[in-house]
Simulated assay, not measured.
Amino acid sequence: MGVKSVNEMVAEAKTRIDNISPAEAHRRATEEGALIVDIRDVRELQRDGAIPGSMHTPRGMLEFWVSPDSPYTKQEFLEDREFILCCAGGARSALSADTMQDMGVQRVSHVETGFGGWRADGMPVTDYDTFRSRAEHRTQPSLLSKQPHD
C-alpha cells in the first residue's frame, strides 16, 4: 500500500467538517462570537497580513493549545464557542478542523478558500504589525506558571 496523498486526506476531511465561505466566517465571527483561528506560519502573516480579531495559532501547536491537559493549553480553546480555522488556501485548515473534531471540539469549521479567498472576497485584512499590537493587548490569562513537560 502506498502513501496516501495529502490531496486525498484533505478531500476526505472536507466530507467530515463544516466548509464555509469567507463571508459566512465573517458573519459568524461578528454576529455569533465565533473565533477565527489563523493557523498560517507567522511569516505568512507578516507577508500577507491577517484577519482583524483572529487568533494566530501556529499549525504545529494547535493540538497542544487545544488539549485541556497540555502544559500549553490556551484559555481561548476552552471557551464554549465556534472555532473557524483559516490557512492560506483551505487545505491545512481542513485537516486541522478534522483533527479538532477528533479531539472532541464540538463547534469547528474552516474557511474553505483560506486567506486567499478571504482577501479575494474583499473581507477585512490588517497588516501584521497592527494585528500583533492588537493581539498583545487582548486580555489573556498568563500561562507562565505552567511548566512544559517533555
Rank of each mutant, 00 (worst) to 15 (best):
Met1Leu: 13
Gly2Ala: 14
Gly2Tyr: 10
Asn7Glu: 15
Glu8Phe: 04
Met9Cys: 09
Glu12Ser: 15
Ala13Lys: 07
Thr15Glu: 13
Arg16Ala: 14
Asp18Val: 11
Ile20Gln: 10
Pro22Ser: 13
Ala23Asn: 11
Ala25Lys: 01
Ala25Ser: 05
Ala25Tyr: 03
His26Val: 06
Arg27Cys: 05
Arg28Asp: 07
Thr30Trp: 05
Glu31Leu: 13
Glu32Met: 10
Gly33Val: 05
Leu35Glu: 11
Ile36Thr: 01
Ile36Leu: 06
Val37Ile: 15
Val37Arg: 00
Asp38Val: 02
Asp41Gln: 00
Val42Arg: 01
Arg43Glu: 14
Gln46Asn: 03
Arg47Gly: 00
Gly49Leu: 05
Ala50Pro: 04
Gly53Val: 09
Gly53Lys: 04
Ser54Asp: 02
Ser54Ala: 15
Met55Asn: 08
Met55Gly: 00
His56Ala: 07
Arg59Ala: 00
Gly60Asp: 08
Ser67Asp: 15
Pro71Asp: 12
Pro71Cys: 07
Tyr72Gly: 00
Tyr72His: 14
Gln75Phe: 15
Gln75Glu: 15
Glu76Ile: 12
Arg81Lys: 14
Arg81Gln: 12
Glu82Asp: 12
Glu82Ser: 11
Phe83Asp: 02
Phe83Trp: 06
Phe83Gly: 02
Ile84Thr: 03
Ile84Phe: 03
Ile84Asp: 01
Ile84Lys: 01
Leu85Glu: 06
Cys87Thr: 08
Ala91Ser: 15
Leu95Pro: 02
Leu95Phe: 03
Ser96Trp: 02
Ala97Val: 09
Thr99Ser: 09
Thr99Val: 07
Gln101Pro: 03
Asp102Ser: 12
Gln106His: 09
Gln106Lys: 15
Arg107Met: 12
His110Gln: 13
Gly114Ser: 10
Phe115Asn: 00
Gly116Trp: 02
Asp121Ile: 01
Pro124Gly: 09
Pro124Lys: 13
Pro124Ile: 10
Val125Pro: 08
Thr126Gln: 15
Tyr128Ala: 12
Asp129Asn: 11
Phe131Ala: 04
Arg132Gly: 03
Arg132Ile: 07
Arg134Gln: 15
Arg138Ile: 11
Ser142Thr: 12
Ser142Pro: 06
Leu144Ala: 13
Lys146Cys: 08
Lys146Val: 06
Pro148Cys: 11
His149Leu: 13
